[in-house]
């Protein structure tokens, strides 16, 4: 474990805490894409299939349980909680997220890490995570005003994978000396998708103005 990966995991955890904080304190999920949250449930379940078969460390197991548990809890809040579900921006959250699943699955069949079920699903999960934020970014462009917690959530979510890229560079030079095409390229694509959001987020933060994404 290196500091970049720990920072990445903590940033990822913090993004989920911020989102849960927003939903629980404001009893609202306005501006949050349910489709992105549903994709994350698929990402975590297909990535952590080895949760009960392979023990890496207490930290690893605990974090996997937290990520699966919180992502399911968020979907539950947005779909079933009697108050929160009324605040879901159903009309704006229109990205056809199910269209993202077949290409990622086909890509995982064509370029898996290994031809085993768990590794094909792991590769699928890596590819899917790279594009899972698209419905959320589209929804942000349609939101007239993005509240601070939602903006912070998306920023932290983008920042976590950027920190993972630093972790991969660090591990390449200090540990593995092996190129890991699948996570690296997916991670670069994933972080690149946040590029314009990062630009407008940092600009709004510097100018102390409301965050707005151009439509």
């Amino acid at each position: 474990m290196n500091i970049f990966r720990l920072a990445g995991d903590m940033t990822h955890l913090l993004s989920i805490v911020v989102l849960l904080l927003k939903i629980r304190t404001t009893k609202s999920c306005a501006g949050i894409s349910l489709k992105t949250q549903e994709l994350y449930v698929i990402v975590f379940i297909t990535r952590y299939l080895d949760l009960f078969t392979r023990y890496v460390s207490f930290y690893n197991t605990a974090m996997k349980l937290v990520f699966i548990g919180t992502s399911v809890a968020i979907v539950w809040y947005m779909r079933l909680h009697k108050v929160v579900k009324q605040t879901y921006s159903r009309d704006e959250d229109t990205f056809k997220h199910y269209l993202l699943i077949p290409p990622c699955f086909i890509l995982a069949l064509l370029i898996p890490l290994e031809f085993t079920v768990t590794e094909i699903l792991w590769s699928f999960s890596i590819y899917l995570e790279a594009v899972a934020i698209l419905p959320q970014l589209l929804l942000l462009q349609r939101s007239s005003n993005i509240d601070n917690l939602t903006g912070s959530y998306v920023f932290l979510l983008g920042a976590y994978r950027a920190l993972y890229i630093v972790n991969w560079v660090y591990r390449f030079f200090t540990e593995t000396h092996k190129i890991r095409w699948i996570p690296w390229i997916s991670g670069l694509v994933q972080t690149a998708l946040y590029a314009d959001f990062f630009y407008y987020y940092i600009k709004s933060w510097k100018n102390h103005e409301k965050l707005r994404l151009p439509a």
Binding site: H12, D50, N60, K64, F67, E114, W122, Y164, R180, P183
Partner: peptide, 10 residues
Amino acid sequence: EPESKLHDEL
């Protein structure tokens, strides 16, 4: 150690 066993990351 094949790469896949390297899934020590989240």
